[in-house]
Computed example of a mutant assay.
Amino acid sequence: MIAALTALRAIVIREALRFVRQRSRFVAALVRPLVWLVVFAAGFRAALGLSITPPYQTYITYEIYIVPGLCGMILLFNGMQSSLSLVYDREMGSMRLLLTSPLPRWWLLICRLLASTVISVLQVYTFLIVAALYGIDFPAMGYLYALPALIVGGVMLGALGLALSSTIKQLENFAGVMNFVIFPMFFLSSALYPLWKMAESSALLRDICAANPFTHAVELIRFALYGEFNAAALGWTLLAGAVFIALALWGYDPARGMKRQKG
Rank of each mutant, 00 (worst) to 15 (best):
A132P: 04
I110S: 11
M178D: 14
A191F: 02
N173V: 12
S101V: 12
G79I: 00
S190E: 12
L157D: 09
A132Q: 07
N179L: 05
R90Y: 01
A210Y: 11
P55G: 02
L150W: 01
P68D: 07
N179W: 02
G69C: 09
S189Y: 06
S101N: 10
M156P: 00
A233M: 00
M185D: 02
L220F: 04
F138R: 08
I13H: 12
S85Q: 15
Q123K: 07
A232Q: 13
G135F: 03
V38H: 02
V130P: 10
Y226D: 06
A255E: 13
T58E: 15
A191G: 12
I60T: 00
A232N: 07
I60D: 04
I52A: 04
L171V: 13
V118C: 09
I208Q: 05
Y65K: 04
M1V: 08
I110T: 13
F40M: 10
R222V: 02
S201R: 11
R25N: 08
A211D: 06
I74A: 02
I13R: 14
M185F: 09
L50R: 11
A132F: 10
T53Q: 14
K262R: 14
V152A: 13
T117G: 08
L220Q: 11
A199P: 09
L247G: 07
L205W: 08
A7G: 11
A131C: 07
Q123E: 11
T126N: 09
P194V: 06
T117C: 14
P139A: 13
R23W: 10
R23T: 10
L225I: 06
L37T: 07
E200L: 15
W250M: 08
L113Q: 08
A242K: 09
S120G: 09
A232I: 13
C209M: 11
M80F: 12
F174G: 01
F214R: 01
G241T: 03
F26A: 15
A28T: 13
N78A: 07
L147S: 11
D253C: 08
P139L: 09
V27K: 00
F44N: 12
L192C: 04
D207R: 13
G154P: 03
L147E: 10
C71F: 02
L50Y: 14
F180E: 01
I182Y: 05
L238K: 07
M73F: 04
M73K: 02
L225V: 04
R23V: 12
A140G: 05
L128S: 06
A131W: 10
R9E: 12
S83I: 00
S85T: 15
R206K: 15
D253M: 03
A199W: 07
Y65E: 04
C209L: 05
V39N: 05
I110G: 07
A28W: 10
L5I: 10
F44L: 15
R222K: 06
M95F: 15
I168W: 02
I74M: 05
L122A: 15
L17M: 10
D89M: 05
L70P: 06
D253S: 10
M198Y: 09
S202G: 04
R18S: 14
Y145C: 11
S202H: 06
V27M: 09
I13E: 13
F44V: 10
S101L: 15
Y252G: 05
Q57R: 14
A199Y: 11
P254R: 01
S120L: 09
R18T: 14
I110W: 11
A131F: 09
I129R: 03
L70Y: 05
V20T: 14
L5N: 11
G153V: 13
L37Y: 03
L37C: 00
R105P: 02
E200C: 08
E91Y: 08
V12Y: 01
